[in-house]
Design a protein around this nucleic acid. Structure first.
Lengths: 338, 338
DNA sequence: CTGAAAGCGCTAACAC
DNA sequence: GTGTTAGCGCTTTCAG
């Protein structure tokens, strides 16, 4: 006698077996109908479809994935779903993936570098591939993780060709901004730095360091800040204290936070203080004053990430890092020094 | 002789079988070790763990889910990941779910009402339950979908007790805003309406209609607008034309777009025009002027949605709609009429 | 305490 | 054209 069922609770209401039974065919036939295999008698196919409708059956994607070995789903791990910058990228990624018939599921790591590896693996264990957006973990951890979650593409971190990668050239971007401000006559510039663990911050710092060397008569002062509105808002006292005439914020979100504070304090921007951001999120175009920032084609970047990930899924990965150079978007928040 | 394998490509690199073989035990034992069943000889358990580490094995969540019948994962369908309002809610939801040991995957419907049902079903077919955030589909379609994706909880749409639901009281919120403006002396108010398919818009319209009856001497004029920055930005000509002294935007994003335009046009807010939003997204606190809006405890709402969904997964669902009343956040963008 | 084997729901040989 | 059956990778009963 066969052993009893291994579990007590049924998961699914109706399964392919129920359909088969109800339609008086085998489950192979039901499967064929579902998957549109053309060699099925139209009469029977119709009957099966009717039964499916009637019973409101949808195939278990889990079972399907297990059997097929693929799910046509990819995962994206994002450090902060609250940052509009990632949306733009995600949007491009999503659309490109959808065009290729893939679903995308995203999970937020809430900037918690320690949870990233586990989240990525879990994500990968239920999808065909993962894209890591701006992972916060150390390089060492990242390199260790990569092989475990392959196929994998990473955005905004270098991978030493252990995975496909697409990056924004932050180094170039910050230089654009610094030159812009210097050209406007500023000689004392504050940099509201971002999280120490972010590559996007290191690269900016590196650019600034070069600038200091190249133009010794301008002072570029680091102010530890962060990545959020609040961080920008709270940075004001430090900025005032150092009597800078211009500030480069870690990103637009921070810049907007500072701008809000300035308005409250009655400090007029850009008349009394020029402010620049980074990323060109949608809000910055419409802020008051509109925000000078550097802009990348975020949505296109998302598309490229998808392409890179897609390539990782084949046997011809694109391992050469793809670098996007930002452009200066000079707007109302920066101005010549009188 | 047994039939050949049904497929040609292997999916997984290492499976539980490989571990079992390498450790010289049965896969049942490996499974026990993985799941921390205490009745395993510590010696053996350790050996298995070593092998797992060495081979870098992680169990297939797909297979696990299929076997277990549950995945401890829930899906969230969001109409627009670009709207910061949803983030706040998502954030609360995520944290609450994580506390209960659940993963959450989110997918964006890009405001496409027609794709929602399919996306929701697909999501549901790979998770244990789904939360529908502000679905855009018709009520009829929603009611038809609900049973197909149960357990399900819905945010910001009524479900006629066919599913758990939590809602923001938009009707009350808009009244708060209208009264605020009327108290400030405004008698000609423009309402930048949102998408016709959104309940959040109907409810606002309903409140406004009541207001018109109650206070006949004030004019509240509808201006078809939308839900995005651009929509707000582009609404200016229409608003100017009707010579309103105050405007209530569909939401903060729209209000911020309008504010940006006003700055460009040299129209000072609130001196020449009072502007109010809805939702209290983080940006609105720091805009210039800071935005008058109505605020709900978005993150707490997320938590409640989780609780409702959790209850749906048990046999004691919470079908009574949970209504959150917003509060007025009067800030700089609205002002007494001179 | 451990192993053998059935079964989760589906797909795809293979045989008829 | 359709049914039978093995197998995807895991969990869990049941026997030993």
């Amino acid at each position: 006698m066969a052993a009893r069922r291994a579990r007590t609770t049924h998961t699914r209401d109706t399964t392919i077996n129920d359909i088969a039974k109800a339609a008086g065919v085998s489950k192979a036939t039901v499967s064929r109908v579902i998957n549109g295999v053309p060699t099925v008698n139209e009469q029977i196919a119709q009957r099966v479809r009717d039964v499916i409708d009637e019973l409101g059956y949808t195939p278990s994607q889990t079972a399907r994935s297990l059997s097929l070995g693929v799910s046509r789903t990819v995962g994206v791990l994002v450090p902060d779903l609250g940052n509009p910058m990632f949306h733009q990228v995600l949007n491009g990624f999503n659309r490109a993936a959808a065009r290729d018939g893939y679903h995308v599921v995203v999970t937020d790591s809430f900037e918690d570098a320690d949870r990233e590896a586990a989240l990525a693996k879990d994500l990968r264990d239920r999808t065909d591939a993962v894209a890591l957006f701006a992972p916060r973990m150390t390089r060492e951890n990242l390199l260790a993780l990569l092989p475990k979650v392959a196929p994998v593409a990473v955005f905004n971190r270098t991978t030493g060709k252990n995975a496909g990668s697409v990056l924004i050239d932050y180094h170039e971007g910050i230089l654009l901004l610094a030159r812009h401000l210097i050209d406007l006559g500023h000689r004392r510039i504050a940099f509201l730095s971002g999280p120490a663990y972010a590559r996007s911050n290191w690269e900016r710092e590196r650019g600034l360091a070069e600038m200091r060397e190249a133009v010794p008569d301008v002072e570029i002062i680091d102010v530890a800040c962060g990545h959020s509105f609040e961080d920008g808002y709270n940075a004001w006292p430090a900025v005032r204290e150092m009597a800078a005439t211009a500030v480069i914020a870690f990103n637009d979100v921070v810049a907007l936070g500072l701008l809000g504070r300035l308005a409250e304090e009655g400090v007029s921007a850009p008349a009394q203080l020029s402010v620049a951001g980074f990323d060109d999120i949608p809000f910055s175009r419409y802020s008051s004053p509109s925000l000078t920032t550097v802009t990348s084609r975020l949505s296109e970047i998302g598309t490229r990430i998808w392409e890179v990930l897609r390539a990782e899924m084949t046997d011809t990965p694109i391992r050469e890092p793809i670098m996007f150079s930002p452009e200066l978007a000079a707007r109302g928040s920066t101005k010549e020094i009188r």
